[in-house]
Each structure stands twice: as structure tokens, then as C-alpha cells.
Write a protein that binds this DNA or RNA. Sequence first.
DNA 1: CATCGTATAGATACCGCTATCTGTGATGCT
DNA 2: AGCATCACAGATAGCGGTATCTATACGATG
Lengths: 350, 350
Amino acid sequence: MPKRNDPGRRPTLADVAERAGVSAMTVSRVIAGNYPVAPPTRSKVLRAMRDLDYVVNAHARALAGATTKTVALVLDDATGPFFAFIARGVEQQATSEGRLCLLCTTHGDPERELAVVELLREQRAEAVILVGGAQDSETYTERMSAFARSLDKSGSRLVLCGRPSPGPDVPATVVEYDNEGGAYAMTAYLLANGHRRIAYVGREIGLSTTDERIAGFRRAHADHGVALDESLIRPGTFSRESGAAATEALWAERTDVTAVFAATDMVAAGVLKALRGRGVRVPEDVSVVGFDDIPLASDLTPALTTVHVPHEQLGREAVRLALHRGPDQDDRVVLGTHIVIRESAAPLRP
Amino acid sequence: MPKRNDPGRRPTLADVAERAGVSAMTVSRVIAGNYPVAPPTRSKVLRAMRDLDYVVNAHARALAGATTKTVALVLDDATGPFFAFIARGVEQQATSEGRLCLLCTTHGDPERELAVVELLREQRAEAVILVGGAQDSETYTERMSAFARSLDKSGSRLVLCGRPSPGPDVPATVVEYDNEGGAYAMTAYLLANGHRRIAYVGREIGLSTTDERIAGFRRAHADHGVALDESLIRPGTFSRESGAAATEALWAERTDVTAVFAATDMVAAGVLKALRGRGVRVPEDVSVVGFDDIPLASDLTPALTTVHVPHEQLGREAVRLALHRGPDQDDRVVLGTHIVIRESAAPLRP
DNA sequence: CATCGTATAGATACCGCTATCTGTGATGCT
DNA sequence: AGCATCACAGATAGCGGTATCTATACGATG
């Protein structure tokens, strides 16, 4: 441990004070700028600071009260296609509010998730933002409630971003986007284009996201007076491979489908690949649409018509809501989604 | 500011000590586990900690010496296509070494970059990892040297990841990847496939990355005894749009080119789009290759033959080298690159 | 029985900074 | 002149931990 007289240690307030021939308090005041200091004194202090290349100790400062606060972002995995956008939103907003941004990942491991939350409690993070699809189970709700309460007690705020709310009386902030509405709009678009046998590919069971999207899918059918063939809702995961496999299976079974609603853009990429393999033309023979609007969507051939999710804004709102909380502030926000029309969907040809 | 007797404040060591009927030191020892504590005492303390839901204050702990150290990752922009992979590598390695990971972005603004480095100095970050292409200028070298020295004085280590080294006597660690070798291998592959008029699209001037890739491009031509037509090296930026525009311009000028080496995968996406627009088939008429091997590469149609850059490993090495430094440890590492053959390049057809 | 080592717990002094209170000359006002 | 006011700087006391030294009880040892 460095002692006061260790020659190699970093300079402290006291060192600057000594060099400038003033008290430590005066130096602190020059830095904070919240108290009058006579110009000559100020410049002597600034001089000394520069000479010693002084840097305040953020930890000491935090301990003494005037903290540089921190916002933490917790992801499953940093390489998820849209996490980057949420991260950008979080980082932007955090920076613009003068906060630092911590990044942690859990790899979907509940054990690690717990450890990370605990660590962030120690760090006294102002907000802990959990992002990413979660199984909407009893266990999940309980876990999140526990996290929320425990973080609340340490003065932090839990923010669930794109995840279901654990309940109304839990001290957490929720930022979601309109899955149901997006799916409704997209399905309606396909129906309006004459499609009647639309497959939904990539129903990942137990995922709240999935349930909401399928609800929109159903509602659109109902509103348009089209009977929904339940066997057209195909199970799968949110991966390219799953999309391809489900498409293969579907086409092996029947070929009367005229449009495919992929659960995500990634799934759509798999669907397109499988269809191309079978010689099915998109959108001439079959229309394909996705969900998410990640950059990949516009790089696919044909460019994917999809539902836009405001990922970046999601991140920004998460930070904003967590930091500016008050009686008139909402603890739950649902951001809108909308469809983006590109080239992968077309009117039904007779 | 919370006072000792503020009822809503977070519990401290003293609170736990009081509840357990022991001294604060004993509690500290139970937590640290580095000193014998009698079993009955230990359990009393553990009990009290649980009752109060006690969490140590990381700041106080850092101030007193036993710090939870931090590694900082500084990016231009979190949404860059491969930043996510570097971030994953950094985060993984940092976590496995028991460090937290801070994330900052600069948006290419030198002002912000300076501010961020200053902030990280205050945070006493153990390592500051700067990622991303940089203009290789006099100014850059000076800036980085200054950062390196200034961070060094505050006990931090500067790591330049995928950026040029500012010089041998600067206290910084450099982790690069073999741009020249990758470009050489790819060019050699095209030449071996019979291509003789290969365009290099996306020469972003002043970027060290570009210079190295072009050097490999040149060397391969020389080694294969093929004269390089300098007018085939086309300027541009690392964007899809630039790739498309450069391709349009090139084809307007001449149509004898049989292969295009795009500076990055993103540029390649633009090249493919432009060629498709002109009815040029890939790889039948023209071969197209890229550089980076981001996920997009395998989603393009046709799947892109490209140079693989070990982004994730880059991030891991950055952290590893910064933390384990010693006399026998290198301060500069160059990771290998290799080509990944997919479907966008084919032998020249007569 | 005096002496000593050992195991355990407490006391004390910082770590580097800020909040708050306490001076102290210079100035303004009657 | 006498006194309140003001602008500024210093002294002091924590923030919540950890390192290090000291104190005490107790069994072992000669």
C-alpha cells in the first residue's frame, strides 16, 4: 500500500496544496468551482495541478459525496445483432447525463446474472439495465422482483429493457416496444396484399416476445375476417438455422403458403436461404417479412420488408427514465414500432 | 448527504458490527476471509450481514487499498460491425480476470477522446483500450504518446487495439492483426485463380489499415510477376455506399476487371449491390472478396469470400497483455489473419 | 507457578476527498 | 470611529473501508 511519502505514488490534493502554498480545501474549491477563490490563488493552484499532472481520485470523491455516477448495462452477449444499438443508446444518454457506462454480460447464465447484479450493487451503480429476451416464467418474475428490491435498497434502480414487467408493485422501470402492434401492422399489410395463407416461422415457446408477436398476428387475421390455420404457426428458435429448417419442413408438408412472417430478421435470413435453395422466388412466388430491422435486413437479397424496432431509442429511454424519476414520471414506457417496406413482400399474384 | 443516523441510508460495516455485537474489523475479516475468525463469531457476523442485506462499498474499498479493478474499452461507435466482437472479447477476458468493464465512445471526436481518457484516469482504470481505425498522422502519434504517458503516470496502461503503434519507447501495449498478410493471401488466391485485372475498392487515404492492406495487395502482384495497374486502386471510405459508388464509377470507365477486392466486407456489400444492378453475375462474371469476416459476409448473396480478422481474440489479448505485464512479456502482438473461402470468388473463365 | 506462544478480537490510523464551521483582513455604512 | 458585512482561506470532521499494532484469554511448557 502506498504511503504518504512513497515517491512514486500519484499526487494528491495535499501535494498540489503544498506546492501551491495553500490548503487542500482551496484546491478542492478550484476544482469544483463552486466557491469563490481569488484569481491569483486560483492560477497558483492551476499551475501546481498542471506541474504535478494531478488527477482527482474518483473513488475518494465518490466516498466523500460528490460522485461521478455510473449506469450499468447487462447483456446476455455483446454480439447479439441489436445489442450494439441498445448499447449505443444507453452509452449516448448516459454520457449526455454525465454518467459513466459499465458493461457486463451474463451469457444467459442465471448464476452469473446474480453475481453481476451483486457486483453492481457494490459499485453503487445508479441504474442497472437488463436487456434481452427472457423466459417469461414464474421463476423469472421472482428473480426480477428480488433484483429490483435488492437494488432498490442499495439505491440503484433496475431497468428492464425489452423484457416483461415483473409486476406493478416492484421497484423497477420497464422500457418495452410494441411487439403486438408491430406484428399486427405487418400481418395486416400482408393480408391487405391479398395473402391468405401466411406462415409464422420461429415461435420460440415461453418467450414473452413471441407470445406478443403471435397475438398481433392473430388479431390481424381476426380483424380481416381471415380464419387462421393454426398449423401455419411453426415452432423454432430465433436463429438463421431454425428459420431454414422450419421452411424446409413446411415446404415438405405443403406448398400453398404465399407469405412467411419470420419471427426475427435473423430467422428471415434462414427462410430466404431455404427458399432460394428450393428455387422459390421472393417476392414473386412467396413474400417474406421479418421483425427487428437490424442492418442485415437491408443487406439481404431481396432487401427485407420488416418491422422496425427502435433499439437505440430503447437504450436512451432506459437511462432517461432511470435517472429522472419523480411522482409524475412513468415507470413503464412502450415505444412504438412500425413496418419498413423494402423488396421481399409483394401483392399476391393470382 | 446521508448522515450516520439517516434511517434510510445503506448499511455499513459499523452497522453490521453493531448488530453482530463485534467490532467493524471483525466484520471486515469475515468478508475478506484472510484472517482467522472463530466459527461462532463468523456465523453471527454472516447472520447480521444477511439480515441487513449488507453490500460493501466498492469506492471505500478502493480508497482503502483492496480495489476491484476496472478495464475500460473506448470505441468510436458501439454499432460498428465488429466492435461487438472486440467488446465481447474484452468483456470476457476482463471478467475472467475479475475485472469490471467500462464502455465509452468518442464518435471520432478528438475532444471527447481526450475527455474520456481524462475521466478514465480519474477512475484509476487499470487498462484503457482504444479500438478502431485511426488516421496515421503525426498528430495521432503525438496524441497517443501523450495519452500513454499520462495514463502511465496515473498507474493505467494504454492499449491500442488494431491501431498503429506510436513508437517503441512509449509506455503502451499494442495488439494488431496482420492486415498486410491477409491482403497478400487473398490477392494471391485471386491471382492463383487466374485473375489478372483485380480492382482494389475503398482505399481510405491516411488510414494505416488501408496502407497495410494495399501493401499486401502490391506484394502479391509482385511475387506473382503480375504488373499492377495503379488505376485499379480506387479511393473511397469503408461504407456500403462508397463501395457501390466506386463500382459504378469503375464500370463506367472500363469493364475488363475480373475481380474486385473490397477494402472491407461492408464495402463488398455495396460492390455486390452495384454489380447486381448492372446485371453482372458474381462469381460467374466477376469475383468479389472482402476483408473482416463479419457476420454479414455469410449472409450476402453470394456468401462472401473474405479475410478473417480475429476480432474477439483481439479484445481478449488486449486485456491479457495489459494485465499481465512483466519483463518477459511482449508489449506488441500481431494476430494472424486467414482467408475464408465462400462463394463470391471463382476461377477466371476464359 | 511463572512464562510463553497462540488464537482471536479490538483500537487506531490512515486512504483522498468534500461539507461545514471557523477565522481574518478589507470594505461599507451610519 | 465603530460595527456589521463580505470575500476569501484554513481547520476539522467525516465518507466506509483496510492495514497494522495492541490487548486479552487460554492452554502448554518447563
